[in-house]
Design a protein around this nucleic acid. Structure first.
Lengths: 155, 155
DNA sequence: ACTGAAAGAACTACTCG
DNA sequence: CGAGTAGTTCTTTCAGT
């Protein structure tokens, strides 16, 4: 993979986008001290280079009634060769799972799931998580707050 | 906090926004089987209700040369009353930290940090993480892949 | 080759029916 | 709630540095 080197202009634009990617081009240009045309061209290049993959809406789950978020660390059964793929494919389909990452180390997968309340969590945990294939062990931690979330970055 | 109940129309719109919040209104309307005006009004209400908090650009760190992502679980020193606040305030300022969440349980904080390579990670870990106040224990796991990331959701 | 300006097309917000 | 209009914003092209 080719590694993209950013200059100061790129960095300024990316920082502005992080705080709000919906900002109109003229405003973005003003804040970055550039002309709109220049910002457009930079954005095109960043997209083309695969730096900017797109954007995503930020939804407040608590407002929608999802009061419980739990982080699960899953260790898989290493005696089954295809355990990893089969687990991932199945877990990906669980609607309550909003995030999933794999690791190098003792723990294989971490996933975050949300539920309306504790009974709802119990139901999901028993019916949809524990039934996933090839689980050797699970450790759960209840999330209290998402404190930092991709805002300031090492640009 | 008032909990917002969504109907099918809201859900359809939110699902479309999750895949790409930059979609033009007319296209969104067509995909949702609605008129643009109706979509606008729903969006306004979702924003007003605090369901839609905004949007965020998705940046591919690997392309920018950040090849290493590590997930750290931090346990704090419970003998210091203000350990939690002081640790969080300090950790928030570390640029390499791209994500941070707090827990209810044995582990207090989990944070993700990115680095260019393993030497870079070592440097950050020693100079910027281990120097954070009130750490009792840290456990690190190297992230291999971010598999699911807020895309399909329990709507 | 890269930048800035301008015109045309597209989109959004607003008002009215 | 839908339709139409006015105001913005985006895109593309062109000329200049």
């Amino acid at each position: 993979m080719r590694i993209i080197m950013l200059d100061d202009v790129d960095r300024r634009i990316l920082r502005l986008l992080q705080s709000d990617p919906a900002q109109p081009l003229p405003e973005l240009a003003t804040l970055a001290g550039l002309t709109p045309a220049r910002v457009t061209r930079r954005l095109d290049r960043l997209r083309q280079d695969g730096v900017l993959l797109g954007q995503r809406a930020i939804i407040d789950w608590r407002v929608l009634g999802y009061a419980v978020e739990v982080s699960l660390r899953v260790t898989l059964d290493k005696t089954v060769p295809r355990a990893f793929d089969e687990f991932m494919d199945a877990a990906r389909k669980v609607r309550a799972v909003i995030e999933m990452q794999t690791f190098l180390g003792r723990v294989d997968v971490r996933l975050s799931l949300i539920a309306r309340d504790l009974p709802d969590y119990q139901r999901i945990y028993r019916a949809e998580i524990l039934t996933l294939p090839h689980i050797a062990d699970i450790e759960a931690l209840m999330t209290v707050a998402q404190v930092k979330h991709d805002e300031s970055l090492p640009l």
